[in-house]
């Protein structure tokens, strides 16, 4: 599964970068996030509850920030075990590019995801759509949280 998209945010790169490293904002953006605890600047533990149709699973695992190149890019990856459902791993390479004379940011993300266990064995038809949906939701929510319009509303 691969997904690469970019979106423009009307705030400067530095602010976007700091939000990308803010666990409270990440916790709001990660779909189904029940708990996100910071262990260090680059390591967090997470509990994420996901529901896809009749299937629901709670994943317990880690969120790691790596390949940090402030304030331009990093890789955010998450890996969790969902008990009997199996495991899920997802990572996104995020690139920030200053646009509009530095007043805005172009955020590009490149997502890779894989699953193990019953999710893979029984639900393969839904893996790609679900991964895309979750990745899109994460970045859409992240951008919405940052965008001035959402602050106004």
């Amino acid at each position: 599964m691969e997904l690469k998209q970019s979106q423009d945010i009307p705030i400067p790169v530095a602010q976007v970068w700091s939000a990308l490293n803010d666990e409270q904002i990440l916790a709001q953006a990660i779909p189904g996030c029940q708990e996100l605890t910071k262990i260090s600047d680059t390591e967090l533990t997470a509990t994420v509850k996901l529901k896809v149709g009749p299937v629901s699973a709670t994943f317990v695992g880690e969120v790691t920030l790596s390949e940090l190149n402030p304030p331009h890019s990093y890789v955010i990856s998450g890996s969790g075990k969902g008990g009997v459902a199996g495991g899920a791993t997802g990572s996104a390479r995020v690139d920030l590019e200053a646009i509009d004379n530095g007043n805005a940011t172009r955020l590009t993300y490149d997502v890779d995801a894989s699953v193990t266990g019953k999710i893979a064995q029984l639900g393969s038809r839904l893996i790609e759509s679900t991964a895309k949906k979750l990745a899109t939701k994460f970045f859409t929510d992240f951008i919405a949280i940052l965008s001035p319009e959402s602050e106004q509303s």
């Binding site: 009749p54 299937v55 629901s56 699973a57 009997v84 019953k118 029984l122």
Partner: peptide, 10 residues
């Protein structure tokens, strides 16, 4: 629903 419950996925 029933097959999902039987698989313990719900």
């Amino acid at each position: 629903l029933i097959p999902t419950l039987k698989q313990r996925l719900a």
